[in-house]
Nucleic acid binder design. Structure first.
Lengths: 138, 138
DNA sequence: GCTTGACTTAGACATTGTCCATTGTAGGAT
DNA sequence: ATCCTACAATGGACAATGTCTAAGTCAAGC
């Protein structure tokens, strides 16, 4: 389970109670949490942890490539622990629920040179929007 | 040029000096402005226009389908006056510049039923990220 | 068990956006 | 042309999210 903590230790990441707690929260349910949700859960395990630390730690985990930032709506960024298998997202327009999806085909090859305007294209992000079964039946 | 204003009037949109100014700003350069940039330009034409009005008006134009909201970075929403031809976006990771692009293929057909999790998928948004020629040479 | 530099903290601050009570006005009715 | 009234605009407070800083704390190596 916690090979996340292993990997981090192996990289010389200084291990503190706070960082461990944040890593554990992300390593739990593979949900897409906002920074404040991560903070709320972290507080459950370590009451004195501060918001700034959670933000800092999340930022570091993103830099290390251990988690991904996802911005599906214009509200809070969400953090996706599933950084090691490329995927895209399917978002419910009503409740904001997110699922990881794996479309076929590669959108990068669908962008002809004539449409690149001299950019060096590095990455592509695909977000499907719709209504989840829960909201549809409500 | 201003068939935007024509269309709005035709829909019974109550025309005020403020709304006209916002529409004119959007109808000008087809750039992707943030709400506050729209406000800044609107103030140039109508100094007493308020921020709230600009936000309200942009929201209404989005509801009417006359402009699109684009969230490419996690900073401010941007507004895209080009709502009538489907397209996607290419964003510079450094300076945030946005270009409209038209990839080949349809990402919607690339999402198999088995990856839809019961969602009614309505829309897909593709964002390419890279470095623009300007930033690359700097 | 020291030392030290990295980590954490609390809270102020910044940015973006929303809400609300009040005031103003577009456009139809007279 | 003037009046009415519903809808729009105002501005300032508030909310949500995120960033920064100065001072205190601690993990890890010696």
């Amino acid at each position: 389970m916690s090979d996340l903590l292993e990997r981090l230790r192996g990289r010389g990441w200084r291990m503190t109670a706070q960082r461990r707690v944040v890593a554990e929260v992300l390593d739990g349910d593979h949900v897409h949490l906002t920074a404040d949700e991560v903070h709320a859960r972290a507080v459950g395990k370590l009451p004195e942890i501060s918001r700034a630390t959670v933000y800092n730690t999340l930022g570091e985990l993103v830099s290390l490539g251990e988690i991904l930032e996802v911005s599906t709506d214009r509200r809070a960024k969400r953090y996706d622990p599933n950084a090691h298998r490329p995927h895209h997202h399917l978002v419910c327009a009503q409740c904001g629920a997110i699922r990881d999806v794996h479309p076929t085909g590669d959108p990068l090859t669908d962008l002809p040179d004539s449409e690149r305007f001299g950019f060096t294209v590095q990455d592509v992000e695909v977000t499907y929007r719709g209504v989840c079964p829960n909201c549809a039946s409500a």
